[in-house]
Every structure is written in C-alpha cells, then in structure tokens.
Design a protein around this nucleic acid. Structure first.
Lengths: 124, 124
DNA sequence: CAGAATCCTGTATGATACTG
DNA sequence: CAGTATCATACAGGATTCTG
C-alpha cells in the first residue's frame, strides 16, 4: 500500500508533494511538448534529468498518479503490440504554468540561496 | 524547448521538495505571522495540521533546512535558560508569497481534482 | 527551553525479470 | 511495447530519552 502516493487525501498537500518529487515535475514539462509514448517519455525524461535511468515501474507509478488527479490523459489504441500515448489535460497544462512560475522564481533566487547555503555550511 | 529550463536545478529541486514535505509549508505560514519560539511554534504547527504532534527533532531539522537556504533566521540570546526565536527573512517572506499562490491555485481546483480522483478510482 | 542522541518504521525509489 | 511482479534499499519522519 501507499505505492505512488495514491492514497493521499488533501489535494493541496498531495499535489505539492507530487511537484516536489523526483520525476513528476520533469514528466509534466516533457508532456507539455505534446503526446508521448511510454518508452520515448521514459528515455527523454531520464536524459533531461542527467541522473540515473527512470525505471518502467516508476514511470508507470508517476503517470498513474498524474492521471488520477486529472493532469494527464492516457490514450490507448488496441493494436498489437499496444500503442499507448500520454498527454496533458487542460488542467495539467494549467498546472505546468504554476510549476514553471515556481521554477523560474527559484531560478532567479538561485544565487541568493546558494550564497545562504555556503554561508551556513562554512560555520564550524 | 528553448528558454526557461526544463532540466537541472540545484536549489530549484530541493526547495520544491521542501515545499512538498510534511511540515515546511506549515512552518513557513506560521512564521509569516511574526517571531516564534521553538516550543510555541511546535505546538501551533501541530495544532494547525490537525494530525499528529510535531516532534522536537523534526521541528529542528526543518528549521535548520529553512535556515540553511536563507528563508528563516534564528536569533539567540545567551540567557539561561536559552531563548531562541525564529522568523522569516525577506527571502522567506517572498517564498511564502509563492507558496500562497500555489496553495490557492490548488484550492481553486480542489473540486476538479477530487472529481478526477473519484472518476479514476471508480473504474474497475 | 531548546536541542542532541538513539532507535524504529513507513514509504518512495529503484533494479531486474517476466508477459499479453 | 507497455506494462506487472518481486525484491531490495535509502531516507524522511517520528517516539523516546537525556542534558547545558
């Protein structure tokens, strides 16, 4: 239980937690550019993060959580092999707007925050 | 996609994670009202969360993290017993502005998100 | 009072193998 | 291709006890 944070109650808190987790913000930003299939989205998000790979399992968990809150839509055509695409909903696009605003606010203060950290860490 | 920044942030990611954690947002909102001492802040934050108590340890950890990033200032007078007060810095007040905007955006969409969840959970 | 030191638990994240 | 199913682990959060 508790996988993917799907059981949380208060939308404000759970969505803020989502925006602060490892992959969701990145997925939202990638999905903003259009429709993405599972494998491509996975590779692109991992490349952008410049960190480790994004596992299939985690990608699925994160997408399910975003879908559950109405930020992402999942489209399936029943071909074989299956073709599944993900995209932002209108609500998801609006959320990305908020996300971008927060990110740029933080980026504008990047230097100030970094300086505060240096100053704090430098004390014995 | 061009300008902005879809990728690596140091403060951006850690601060977003902070804003999404269990106590930091609440502490920022309480501290916005003025200067607070450890014990009072602890009690008040716990009361507002309507959840469990906030342990001394966690309060200290969260305050240290906020202080390190330059959002909170810690003032000590060397009396016995010690008197320690916490307050927002100007940067911290600005951060609370951003936090409030995000919170109210989410609160305005609370119904829509809740509906999406119900709809999602109802299937299967 | 404010906090440090310990110890403990749940949850998020991840690696890997398997399947319709 | 787009997932599940397992198994493993790191870490945030928290309960409790002690002290300058």
């Amino acid at each position: 239980m508790g996988e993917g944070g799907v059981e949380r109650e208060d939308p404000a808190r759970s969505v803020m937690a989502m925006l602060g987790d490892r992959w969701s913000p990145l997925l939202l930003l990638v999905l903003e550019t259009g429709e993405w299939r599972h494998a491509d989205l996975r590779r692109t998000a991992a490349a952008l993060s410049a960190e480790q790979a994004l596992s299939q399992r985690i990608l699925t968990l994160k997408l399910r959580a975003l879908e559950r809150d109405g930020f992402v839509s999942r489209m399936v055509t029943d071909d074989v092999p299956p073709r599944v695409s993900y995209a932002l909903t209108p609500l998801g696009r609006a959320l990305v707007g908020e996300l971008r605003r927060t990110i740029s606010w933080l980026n504008e203060r990047r230097g100030e925050i970094a300086a505060a950290r240096r100053s704090y860490d430098e004390l014995d």
